[in-house]
Design a protein around this nucleic acid. Structure first.
Length: 728
RNA sequence: GGACGCUUAGCUCAGCGGUAGAGCAUCUCCUUUACACGGAGAGGGUCGGGGGUUCGAAUCCCUCAGCGUUCACCA
């Protein structure tokens, strides 16, 4: 305390941790404390229980490492929103949480295992689970500390973790309800398989990669077919062409043709389907339904046989004959050599450019596989959300996300919910070993079915526990209502639906769209009314940060160097929603200078207030009145901008006012007036008035320094700046 | 291939119908009693190209070009 008087430049390190403790101890991070305890005159009029709630649910950070620059932006923007609304007299709740982040965390942990020369495939699932749990809980603590470092004024008493028992219970209830309504089903469908991670992935968890391969034209009986993947062709016994293709008019649908193939003679069947592009290749192709999504669809449509050619480790199965057991990459060339020897290669087109799917984590080539998986039917869930968005019941900031969301929702496909990993919420079900039917069991998800004398109702077969876990987004997709339903008694009633969902534009489909669907379905209400999407935080050169590039900026280091306030305001000014931001240290340094400027201007004012008598009668001169008016104009403009979520302009305006109007003009001009006893008191009043209000306007952006200074101002009955009323 | 976005001062970006703005960088001057993490001032842009609407366009419309993001089952 009294740090303002020591004449040193502003030192964030001396201030920030103490101030955070002051806030935390005050209890005002909780909206409960905000009701009825306000004693300053301005808020006396407000009846505690009539305060309107304002709620933001914090996107649960992945508890598997450190806060990154993107998190810093999340914490800053959401804290600005929360602090602003709190000062406006709302019952502000910002509910923090962390995510076990299923696949993401397991991948991080597997990398750690790899470094230690271990492998998850050599561990018992329970062992692995316990280890990751330990790891996650440690990281959870770490991240909580870092969130506090950011100055986040969230209500820690309501903190939630996606693996909390009450959360899991709610997730199970939702799952069961969806199952009972026939929206969840288990079935053999083609899925994206990552052979490294040994799990299925949703479409969103794969990324398209352009690559150049050879396109082989192979003689298939009387036809020539084009393929980049000859290694999948062993089981191909259907040749497909368009009904209208004149080249194949002589061939009838269902016609059998005997022909010589890779490992000997086979019988092929002609299939006519409009999915075929007559302009591509020869207009005829064979299909591999087990390993290609398009082929799978065709096979489904015509009830064709499906055979697995490649196992889950990317090796050829016995159907490949002499190639059995080979990795597909090495098999390809050898198969072509054999086909060439048999004279079955018509030609090879080099440099064929096409797009393949890769695992978004390890870039392993995705191998489509048919596997029993849990799916959620999305169409009927998407429909009401589409209607709500079209009726503008959800506001998107920036607004072009409305179209993007609608487009995705209108083309939605079923969501594969199950993952073959241990780290996650177990799917509460039992599977019949014999007939593969599934039974939902949310009451005893952990119990071995043999303890229940469980047998399959359909075939009498033995029941075993489902070992798959949920896609992590299935639980986080329920986050807004789950956190509040699992919370204190009236929380759901008071705070749901929430006001703003602020998160990265990147995860609009992964998360935002799914929250809207699951929220509306489960609670009959949209979980939030405003979606604020921020862009990526890039490095100073505008490149995406990545560990492999080595350009990751650690926000904690920036805080150490420049202070949290400087980092926060540099993340906000000029950063329009949805646009990515290049984080340049020079900028942060510039705002560190600003913090120092605030510090010194405040010191000047405080120094000149030693003899200030607030009760003395004052009369402002014309120039001073003008100054106050100008401040009021700024308050009005800023308030409007804050209400419009235009923090990037609001912050800049206050910055500009404080430095170039208050410091450069008002303070400079006041020096003379302070020296004159006749005008001294009025000048003191004016300076204190402008400084106090400026601190209030700045507080959401730079909470630490403003609170520290406020605590040192000679004002009677003051409390915390955090709960002071926003100026009018 | 579709959708969306971007193109404004050397750099990073605001502005989005009324005679060009900020931060950083550059240059000149100033150890002025809050601050050199400072002050006073200066230079620098035909707002991607072309067309249109308008009394008036970075700002609205059309079109072209480049960049980026995202979605998509062409073997």
């Amino acid at each position: 305390m009294e740090t303002l008087k020591n004449g040193q430049p502003y030192d964030a390190k001396q201030v920030e941790d103490n101030i955070y403790k002051l806030w935390e101890d005050s209890g005002f991070f909780s909206p409960d404390k905000l009701s009825g305890t306000q004693i300053n005159a301005d808020s006396m009029r407000i009846n505690a229980d009539k305060r309107k709630p304002f709620t933001i649910i914090m996107p649960p950070a992945n508890a598997n490492g450190n806060l990154h620059a993107g998190h810093a932006l999340v914490m800053t923007i959401e804290d600005i929103m929360t602090r602003y609304k709190r000062m406006r007299g709302f019952k502000a709740l910002w509910l923090p949480g962390l995510d076990h982040a299923g696949f993401e965390t397991q991948v991080v942990y597997e990398k750690k295992l790899e470094k230690e020369g271990r492998s998850r495939f050599k561990m018992k699932p329970e062992e692995l689970y316990q280890e990751i749990l330990q790891f996650t809980l440690e990281n959870k603590k770490n991240i909580e500390g870092q969130i506090k470092k950011m100055g986040a004024s969230c209500d820690w008493s309501r903190e939630k973790f996606t693996l909390d028992k009450d959360i899991v219970t709610i997730v199970y209830q939702t799952f069961e309800k969806l199952y009972d309504k026939g929206l969840v089903y288990r079935g053999k469908k083609i899925i994206n398989w990552c052979s490294k991670h040994q799990t299925s992935l949703s479409d969103l968890e794969t990324k398209d990669a352009e690559q150049i391969d050879k396109l082989y034209y192979l003689k298939y009986g009387p036809f020539v077919i084009a393929t980049v993947r000859p290694e999948t062709k062993f089981g191909d016994k259907y040749v497909v062409m368009h009904q209208k293709d004149p080249r194949y008019a002589n061939y009838k649908h269902g016609q059998k043709i005997a022909l010589e193939w890779i490992n000997g003679p086979i019988e092929a069947t002609v299939i006519k389907d409009e999915a075929i592009d007559m302009d591509f290749g020869t207009g005829a192709m064979t299909i591999t339904p087990w390993h290609d999504a398009v082929d799978f669809e065709i096979a489904q449509k015509h009830s064709l046989d499906k055979e697995q050619i490649i196992d889950f480790y990317g090796k050829l199965l016995p159907i490949a004959g002499e190639f059995s057991g080979m990795k597909i990459t090495e098999a390809r060339q050898k198969i072509i050599e054999k086909l060439q020897a048999k004279g079955l290669v018509e030609k090879i087109e080099e440099n064929y450019k096409h797009v393949v799917k890769r695992c978004y984590k390890c870039e392993t080539l995705i191998e489509p596989q048919i596997k029993d998986q849990w799916f959620l039917k999305m169409e009927s869930l998407a429909k009401p959300v589409i209607a709500s968005i079209q009726a503008n019941k959800v506001t998107f900031i920036p607004k072009h996300y409305k179209k993007i969301s609608l487009h995705w929702l209108k083309n939605i496909t079923d969501w594969p919910l199950s993952r073959q990993i241990v780290w996650g919420i177990p799917i509460p079900a039992k599977i019949c070993e014999k007939c593969q039917s599934a039974i939902i069991d949310t009451t005893h998800p952990e119990i071995n079915p043999s303890d229940l004398n469980g047998t399959c109702g359909k075939c009498g077969g033995n029941l075993i526990k489902e070992t798959d876990t949920f896609d992590t987004w299935f639980s986080s997709g329920q986050w807004p209502f789950a956190t509040l339903q699992a919370g204190q008694k009236n929380d759901f009633k008071t705070f749901y639906p929430t006001d703003v969902m602020e998160t990265a534009g990147e995860i609009i489909f992964f998360w935002v769209a799914r929250m809207l669907m699951l929220g509306l379905y489960t609670t009959k209400k949209l979980p939030f009314t405003t979606v604020y999407l921020h862009g990526l935080v890039l490095d100073a050169k505008g490149e995406k940060m990545s560990k492999s590039k080595g350009n990751v900026i650690n926000p904690m280091e920036l805080i150490d160097k420049y202070g949290t306030d400087s980092l926060r305001i540099s993340l906000v000014i000029g950063n329009t929603p949805g646009t990515s931001l290049a984080l340049d240290e020079n900028r942060i340094r510039g705002y560190k200078n600003f913090a120092n400027k605030i510090w010194n201007a405040s010191r000047f004012v405080v120094m000149n207030l030693k003899d200030y008598n607030p009760k003395a009668k004052i009369s402002l001169n014309t120039a001073q009145k003008k100054n106050i008016k100008e401040l009021q104009k700024l308050v009005k403009e800023t308030t409007k901008l804050m209400d419009d979520y235009k923090f990037y302009i609001a912050a800049e305006k206050i910055y500009h006012y404080f430095w170039h109007t208050f410091c450069d003009k008002i303070i400079e001009e006041s020096k003379e007036a302070l020296a004159d006893p006749k005008s001294r008191t009025a000048t003191q009043y004016m300076l204190l008035e402008i400084l106090t209000n400026s601190l209030k306007l700045l507080h959401p952006f730079m909470p630490f320094i403003t609170e520290e200074i406020y605590q040192q101002l000679p004002i009677k009955d003051k409390k915390l700046l955090m709960i002071e009323r926003w100026p009018k």
